[in-house]
Write a protein that binds this DNA or RNA. Structure first.
Lengths: 151, 151
DNA sequence: GAAGATGGACAGGAGGCCTGTCTAGCTGGA
DNA sequence: TCCAGCTAGACAGGCCTCCTGTCCATCTTC
């Protein structure tokens, strides 16, 4: 995060980090507004970390935590919240009596569907405004950038 | 690491939102590691919201809150934390006896300098790996995307 | 002046994340 | 076969960020 205390904070040059963050932030905000509109105000930003990583067959909390890169305690809390509100359910794992499998309920699937729909709309909107070619170039450049930062 | 029994998460193509978020997230992480290395472990992610929006002349908490898009109560807490650790100081506003101006101390300026240096390094690194032309194109496309989402 | 707006403080609370610890259940080697 | 050590998850306790609501002092406007 740079920040040039030159004149006023407002007229800083556009900073690459912010250019990356803003579309993501605004998109997330709109997605959660959409959830709320469709009757799922209980689904908050970090819960994407659960729903996003669920397998159809059900997934253990510890596996979810690993995928989402948070501790299993944190993940357990997110799951508990979603369970309280009926988005996921936990069933015993038949293969391991210590474990429980987290699975989306119908209500959870609904949220997932809303998210997919929203993302598709959003990408279509961006494509309409940037143009198909530039959108493809943007994605390609971002993919390369991600490979760079990940490497 | 992922020697997990078979199943991966739901099959997803690389998702545009994540492509935007990851470089930002990784960059932030590295920046805060840098802060810690240089003796400023107290500066945590949200404190960028303060430092980033400070004017040289000093800035009111309510203005900072507005710029950072959080409530003034939240901003007041961030400022208090930074003040406790000597990064900013609050002085009475000569123009309004209700108000106080938040200003960076020398220690705060040091953190700025570290951030600016880090951002410069990071951008240079990305440019080296993507190439100058592609980096410029990426920035340009991101600027257009930001205009689209902001509009 | 007085009414209303604004700057900021304080109280209380929620969510998300952490470390540490504990039990139940699994697994592999002697 | 049995036990040591590991793993899955629950529980306790704590920190940080952010929120709403309330209050007072001060400024602004009429």
């Amino acid at each position: 995060m740079s920040s040039l205390p030159e004149t006023t904070a407002r007229e800083r040059p556009r900073n690459l980090a912010l250019l990356l963050r803003e579309p993501f932030r605004i998109g997330s905000e709109q997605l959660h507004e959409r959830f709320a509109e469709r009757g799922h105000p209980e689904v908050r930003a970090p819960h994407g970390n659960v729903l996003q990583y669920l397998d159809d067959a059900g997934t253990r909390v510890s596996v979810l935590a690993q995928r989402a890169q948070i501790t299993k305690q944190s993940m357990a809390e997110l799951v508990a919240h979603l369970e309280r509100h009926g988005y996921v359910e936990r069933t015993p794992d038949p293969d391991d009596r210590r474990a429980k499998l987290v699975r989306a309920t119908a209500r959870g699937e609904e949220v997932y569907a809303i998210a997919r729909e929203f993302v598709a709309e959003m990408e279509a909107d961006w494509t309409r405004q940037l143009g198909k070619g530039d959108m493809r170039r943007l994605r390609e450049l971002l993919e390369r950038l991600n490979d760079v930062v990940a490497g």
